[in-house]
Amino acid sequence: MSSRTKIVVLHMKEIIYTAVFAALAVLLIVLLMFMFLPKNKEARTNEEKYMPGVYTSTVTLNNTALEVEVTVDEAHINSIRFSNLDETVATMFPLIQPAIEDIAEQVYDHQSLENIQYSEDNPYTSQVIINAIEEALKKAETTK
């Protein structure tokens, strides 16, 4: 019985290419992990800051109760409106509807009540509306 010796010839060029492609594959995997995995637990919980639903708070103007209705999902403020604004109140306070529309647009853009610009025509009405929205959002916040 004779044993046959097998000789394997490796070219240095092939070894270098294999090492480079393996290093690039590992780098790609690490990069994808950093891109798609959340940074920490706080990043996951920041996405869920509201309990989805419709929340209301009351604003009283001239013995008339107006309800500010705020609709939220887990992470966004979706809608802000008066739920029972009738014609008599709109006639008595003509600037209240444009004020809530302006505030709602700013809140949709920022998704927060920070840095809201008040209208020069009705700063006090705007402040009352923002306080009502803030009260409704406190009801909507999840406890952690």
Rank of each mutant, 00 (worst) to 15 (best):
V30N: 08
L32G: 11
L32R: 08
F34M: 15
F34A: 13
M35K: 15
M35T: 14
P38E: 12
P38S: 13
K39T: 10
K39E: 08
K39I: 10
N40K: 09
K41Y: 11
A43R: 08
R44S: 14
R44K: 15
T45Q: 13
E47N: 13
E47R: 13
K49F: 09
M51G: 15
G53M: 10
G53Q: 08
Y55H: 12
Y55A: 10
T56G: 05
S57W: 07
S57T: 12
T58L: 12
L61I: 09
L61N: 02
L61Y: 06
N62A: 08
N62G: 10
N63R: 06
T64I: 12
T64S: 12
E67I: 09
V68R: 06
E69Q: 14
V70S: 02
T71I: 02
A75S: 15
A75K: 11
A75Y: 10
I77D: 01
N78Q: 14
S79H: 07
S79T: 04
S79M: 06
R81C: 02
S83G: 12
S83C: 09
E87Y: 12
V89Y: 03
V89P: 05
V89E: 06
T91E: 15
M92N: 14
M92I: 14
P94E: 13
I96F: 05
I96D: 03
P98C: 06
P98Q: 05
E101D: 13
D102W: 03
D102C: 01
I103V: 08
A104N: 05
A104P: 07
Q106C: 04
V107P: 00
V107Y: 01
Y108V: 02
D109R: 07
Q111T: 03
Q111Y: 03
S112R: 07
L113N: 11
E114M: 06
I116F: 00
I116W: 00
I116H: 00
Q117C: 00
Q117S: 04
Y118H: 04
D121Y: 10
D121F: 13
T125S: 04
V128D: 04
I129C: 01
I129A: 00
